[in-house]
Amino acid sequence: MEAQRSVADMKPGDSAIISGFLDENISVKLLEMGFLPGTAVRFNFTAPLGDPVCVSVSGYDLSLRLQEASTISILS
């Protein structure tokens, strides 16, 4: 079985659909910011040191750490 992929595995320029969350504590915050299962997320670019990353979701740009990005599972 292929390992569960998350937003943290994406490369700049990639798009994917959010499938769910792996960490319940942080998921309520992510949901509020528009990371909804079924919506598209686009990986824009990373900070110079590789973390945090900038993604587009629900029509706007957000920065989050790889640690948070890794709790958002995706279908690709």
Partner: peptide, 12 residues
């Protein structure tokens, strides 16, 4: 007390 996170809007 809780995990640290950084979820922040990048305004235009």
């Amino acid at each position: 007390k809780e995990p640290s996170y950084l979820i922040m809007e990048m305004p235009t």
